[in-house]
């Protein structure tokens, strides 16, 4: 049996190498004193220092945080309620399923131009608020799917027991249902947060022309459009660190479910 595992290991090593090596190179380069991929001149954190001195990047980081936190709060509430509503239905509604699924599959470029057209038709000034509104769309769909997966294993007889013992619907929700789905709600919120931090296309179209609402991915896009800048390596490393931490945490909280 041992020998039959060897080809599998080779395949996995190759595929994980392909997935992680390019990113590992970025991380390594971010600590290269020269900043160039051609020569290693020594370990240095100077590119991280350069980030702290870059007003544009700091401003963009601030905007990203505002957008991600706001979109996460709204989408976690809406997405959780949607999941509860969908799972409580006696019969599945095809329309509801389609509406909740659509944000995850619609090409982002289409949603982006649709939102741009919509906001400009309504004469809404574009800015951070329009990015937040747009992010909630796909964030809530992901929160909903994470929470629903948890609700599928939820034992509704506990709820009935609570009601039989005289607890109100409200008390039952906060004392029974919510504590049991809470890991999934937090996992969903962390996923929404990561998605928002990383989202580029929809932000790009709904941010408007002003410099005031540039987010980090938009800033990165303008920096890498025309080649390599060493600061980007440091910034990329930091962002990937944040995403990976949020996702590991999310996975750990929701560990009974597969990703």
């Amino acid at each position: 049996m041992r020998n039959s595992r060897i080809p599998g290991r080779l395949v996995l090593t190759a595929v994980f190498g392909f997935l992680y090596l390019p990113v590992a190179v970025l991380v390594l380069l971010s600590f290269n004193e020269s900043g160039l991929p051609t020569t290693w001149t020594g370990f240095s954190t100077k590119w991280y220092g350069a980030l702290l001195g870059n007003g544009k990047i700091l401003g963009a980081a601030g905007n990203t945080l505002v957008v991600a936190v706001a979109a996460t709060i709204v989408s976690t509430i809406l997405g959780t309620l949607l999941a509860l509503g969908m799972e409580a239905r006696a019969r599945k509604s095809g329309t509801l399923e389609a509406i909740a699924f659509a944000p995850m599959v619609i090409p982002d470029i289409v949603l982006a131009v649709a939102l741009l057209s919509f906001f400009s038709k309504l004469n809404v000034t574009l800015g951070l608020h329009t990015i937040i509104i747009s992010h909630v769309i796909f964030d809530l769909a992901f929160v909903c799917s994470v929470v629903r997966a948890r609700l599928k294993n939820f034992d509704y007889s506990v709820v009935e027991a609570s009601r039989d013992l005289g607890a109100s619907g409200w008390t039952t929700f906060w004392r029974i249902t919510f504590p049991s789905i809470m890991p999934a709600v937090i996992a969903g919120a962390l996923l929404a947060f990561t998605l928002s931090v990383d989202e580029f296309i929809i932000s790009f179209f709904t941010a408007g022309a002003g410099r005031g609402s540039t987010t980090l991915p938009m800033q990165i896009y303008s920096m890498i459009r025309f080649g390599i800048t060493p600061e980007v390596n440091a910034l990329a490393t930091l962002i990937m660190g944040v995403s990976a931490t949020a996702l590991l945490l999310s996975q750990w909280l929701n560990r009974e479910q597969l990703p």
Binding site: P22, V23, V25, L26, L191, T194, L195, V197, D198, F200, P217, I220, Y221, I224, G227, I228, V232, A236, I239, M240, S243, A244, L247
Partner: peptide
């Protein structure tokens, strides 16, 4: 789940 732009940039 991590940043699409960064993963693309790695290939540059």
């Amino acid at each position: 789940w991590s940043n699409y732009l960064i993963r693309t940039y790695a290939w540059i």
